[in-house]
Design a protein around this nucleic acid. Structure first.
Lengths: 163, 163
DNA sequence: GGCGATAATCTCGCTCACCGAGATAGTAGG
DNA sequence: CCTACTATCTCGGTGAGCGAGATTATCGCC
């Protein structure tokens, strides 16, 4: 991200501002996250998009949302053809099942198979546990600080997908 | 990320552990980051890979590293053919320049053009400023907490890209 | 100082993810 | 039922990225 704020010439403050370092750190973490995702994908014969799709479906399941093909495509920013292709791949690998919605038989509901969940847990479990261990070493006030930071950042990044 | 730790049946603790919520929050932030990157790419006629390449080049510049085509390819996980293609695209758009290294004339050094930096700053500047504002509202101890959290998380995610 | 080994980048041909457009099947309203 | 609408799939095409190998430059060695 071209976030070269340092040589901004309105502040003759030569050293890189400390807070900006934190922004770089945050970005580094997001990059790591992406790399792990790609690694998981490659290791299981999938594409990054497929992994994102699984994540999306699990999120939907957790939120008790329908998890239709259309929703998935919208979340991934794919058109209908691409969405069908993603689902085809995941189905071929046995990671999701297509289920006709009995109430609206035009719709396809997607269910993530237990094997896929197990696969994901095997890979990401240790990483998540690592973060949880970090959090365990923090006291409640510190955890609250982290929560406020992440929430506020999330708000900043999620706001106004402009014109 | 299939991080369904909730229905783990060794703890009849029904509500989702609070710390796990923080992990989800962190992941949400990384997803936002990725979406913004994709948005920036689409808005400027580039692909996500191209944006990652630019980021990588700017990072190298900041770290005073050489920024050769080879390094770029390695960082992006592309082979030489793909790397050439990325550079071709960026060069065609006028975002980077190819410069023969005078000391080792096999090498190509890549320089990000000012226009590209300006473009990036226009787009990401407000977002970065938003995060900086959040950090400004924190006191030094809280900022340190955030730093420790991000650093530790980075360590967890960056460690052992296993066999 | 020329010569094979090595390194950095580029070229060629291919595969496959994703797109646009349009087909198909199901639903809802008059 | 006939039309408008919605959800998903099919088809053909574009282009990113891969593997293999060509090309150009550097270096160590005798």
């Amino acid at each position: 991200m071209p976030d070269n704020h340092e040589p901004e010439n309105h502040q003759p403050d030569d050293r890189e501002p400390e807070n900006l370092q934190l922004v770089h750190l945050l970005r580094a973490v997001t990059v790591d996250f992406g790399l792990r995702q790609a690694e998981f994908a490659a290791r299981n014969g999938m594409h990054p998009t497929d992994v994102r799709a699984l994540i999306c479906l699990l999120d939907a399941a957790r939120a008790a949302e329908p998890a239709t093909a259309g929703l998935l495509g919208a979340r991934l920013g794919l058109n209908s053809a691409g969405t069908t292709a993603v689902i085809d791949r995941l189905e071929r690998l046995g990671h999701v099942a297509r289920i006709r919605d009995e109430h609206d038989r035009r719709r396809i509901l997607l269910r993530v198979q237990p094997a896929a969940i197990r696969l994901g847990r095997e890979f990401f479990g240790p990483l998540i546990d690592g973060v949880l261990r970090v959090l365990d070493s923090f006291d409640p006030a510190e955890r609250d600080t982290v929560r406020r930071f992440l929430t506020a950042t999330h708000t900043v990044f999620a706001s106004d997908p402009r014109p």
